[in-house]
Write a protein that binds this DNA or RNA. Structure first.
Length: 573
RNA sequence: CGGGGUGUAGCGCAGUCUGGUAGCGCACCUGCUUUGGGAGCAGGGGGUCGGAGGUUCGAAUCCUCUCGCCCCGACCA
């Protein structure tokens, strides 16, 4: 491609609404352009990277035995009513009406459609297992889209769905997908880690997320440096710890005057005790009614764990306006003794401890020496707190490390959640009707490209990994000298003939502009043809990653660059 | 959905408090010079000042409503 004929315009200044590196660079380099909040144009250069990643994904999915199809972006509401998600999915689901006033959704995911599709065609165990995938535009009406392609509302995703007769069969496919995902991310040279994850809106029994480690990541993950345990912070557990307190004989309940102590830190300071010796009380509003959760004062409640334990459809922190009405206690002084909350949960961090200091359910009052079972009904114990860096690994006890990550893939063992609600059944060998056992596997295409940039850039721009670079080589024409132009064109033609993805920078621009643009866009390899070096019979080539310039004759450089591209392409294959 | 901010040329911004008919940098066009890391000089084109209503002789500026966008929080594959 000749740049002078191409639709590629870089920006010197960063649009003011960009806030992460990948978004700034993608906009500046002319890869994407925002059309509305969370909705982007994929400009020609950006589309090339997207298409290249899609191709890698296709190759690996096909290799793993999956089959591509394409489902509609617009889906009838009936399907969502059938699965129950028309009610459950919430405002993130974009609902639209057609001219007949019938309800549709713009698909945020495709469990319903695929389940119906398979249900209509597959009846026998002989036809299973099957694994179907698509690469398609989805829409989720995010509360707050941000970070460019990392959290758009409209986005491109690869999603696959597998159907099985047995758990074992699902396990096999799940494992095959796990391997395929690792291969995909390895081929893109992405530093990633698979972690255990919560299943969220999709549901199911087990799931793993693929995280690309990056400062700008929206998710926190814990990882064990010793045994490779890894989990999303929402899900992560650590070994039970009881290092702070010796169990003591239960003492008599005692009220303490604690004026003006709204927070747990206030109370600790006032009483001169570490917060680890206090009990923190959280109250959540749920569809099952208000729920009180007690955690050790220095720990944090984990809403996902709590919600999963309760089996609640929705849950949120009790709003201040309703607090006293629901709990009977002023904010800051809520506690389990005599509370109006019907359900009281307590984190494992409190198990076995006695003589708690808790809120007194009256203004300016805490109560000491409170003992569960004696002063209030024994609470439901469970893992309700969030892991901190340094907590012992649940498997091997090594202190856990905490990272930020970008979730680029998420795989689930769905089980029969959708096949049961949507009657997707097969006949087994004995002629018995059984719901199919399902898995689903998502991979964010745009997000992965953005993650690659987050992970590979410098002050001057993107440093593309070769496999998803929009072009592998840029040939920069330096100046207007006839020889220069001719030589550059010859090199360009030879690279094209060799099947190299090459962009010829034949624009009428000064060299500095061209070099800055080449760095910004981040072509892995650059060949610069200029009068000075050409006078000595040479042209110059360099890698974007170190920009070390090397001179040689045009033919030699051309041959060398072809070799380098081919070598880089084959890496990870 | 709560709190805050913002909307003026393709991009980045000033002007708004104190009303007088719109400006700067980059980009774009023309000319000359320049030509290996975002050139210089000179000239030029481009804006319903987010929208609607109101106040006023006069509104980018004041008032009311509305829409978009951004940030923090809540929420979320």
């Amino acid at each position: 491609m000749r740049w002078s004929n191409y639709f590629l315009y870089t920006l010197r200044e960063v649009p003011s609404d960009a806030d992460v590196i990948s978004q700034k660079l993608m906009m500046r380099a002319g890869l994407i352009r925002k059309v509305a909040a969370g909705i982007y144009n994929y400009l020609p250069l950006g589309l090339r990277s997207i298409k290249k990643l899609e191709q890698i994904v296709r190759e690996e999915m096909n290799r793993a035995g999956a089959t591509e199809l394409l489902m509609p972006a617009i889906q009838p509401a009936e399907l969502w009513m059938e699965s129950g998600r028309w009610q459950k999915y919430g405002r993130e689901l974009l609902r639209i009406k057609d001219r007949h006033d019938r309800d549709f959704v713009f698909g945020p995911t495709h469990e319903e459609v695929i389940t119906e599709t398979v249900r209509d065609s597959i009846n026998s165990y002989r036809q299973l297992p099957i694994n179907l995938y698509q690469i398609q535009t989805k829409f989720r009406d995010e509360v707050r889209p941000r970070f460019g392609l990392m959290r758009g509302r409209e986005f491109i995703m690869k999603d696959s769905y597998s159907f099985h007769t047995t758990r074992e069969s699902l396990d096999q496919t799940y494992e095959a997908m796990r391997k395929a995902y690792s291969r995909i991310f390895n081929r893109c040279a992405l530093d990633h880690v698979p972690v255990e994850a919560d299943t969220g809106n999709i549901g199911g029994s087990a799931s793993h997320e693929f995280m690309v480690l990056a400062q700008s990541g929206e998710d926190a993950v814990v990882s064990c440096p010793h045994c490779k345990y890894g989990a999303n912070i929402e899900k992560a557990t650590s070994k039970f710890f009881d290092d702070e307190t010796e169990p003591a004989p239960a003492a008599a309940v005692e009220d303490i005057h604690t004026p003006g102590t709204k927070t747990i830190d206030d109370v600790g300071r006032f009483l001169g005790k570490p917060t680890s010796q206090l009990v923190k009380t959280l109250v959540f509003d749920t569809d099952l009614g208000p729920v009180m959760v007690l955690v050790r004062g220095d720990r944090e409640g984990n809403e996902v764990k709590i919600k999963n334990h309760l089996g609640a459809q929705w849950m949120e922190m009790l709003p201040d306006t309703r607090f006293e009405e629901a709990t009977g206690a002023p904010i800051g002084y809520c506690g389990p003794v005599g509370t109006k909350c019907a359900r009281v949960l307590a984190d494992y961090s409190l198990r076995g401890r006695s003589n708690w200091i808790v809120g007194g359910n009256r203004r300016d009052t805490h109560t000491a020496n409170v003992n569960p079972g004696r002063d209030f009904p024994e609470p439901e114990y469970g893992d309700f707190s969030t892991v901190f860096a340094g907590d012992p690994c649940p498997r091997c006890g090594t202190p856990l490390e905490l990272y930020r990550g970008i979730e680029v893939g998420h795989i689930f063992k769905l089980g029969t959640k959708y096949s049961e609600s949507m009657n997707c059944v097969f006949l087994d060998e004995g002629g018995e009707r059984k719901p199919m056992i399902m898995g689903c596997y998502g991979l964010g295409i745009g997000r992965t490209v953005a993650a690659a940039i987050e992970q590979s850039h410098d002050d001057d721009g993107i440093i593309w990994p070769m496999p998803i670079a929009p072009y592998e080589v840029v040939v920069t024409v330096v100046g207007k000298d006839e020889n220069v132009v001719r030589t550059a064109n010859e090199i360009y033609e030879k690279l094209l003939a060799a099947g190299i993805e090459v962009l010829l920078d034949d624009r009428d621009e000064r060299p500095g502009v061209k070099f800055k643009d080449a760095d910004l866009i981040g072509f892995p390899l650059r060949i610069a043809v200029g009068a000075k070096s050409l006078a000595g019979g040479n042209v110059e080539w360099s890698w974007r990653r170190d920009r070390a310039k090397q001179l040689d004759a045009p033919d030699a450089v051309t041959a060398r660059v072809i070799d380098e591209v081919k070598a880089a392409r084959s890496q990870g294959l």
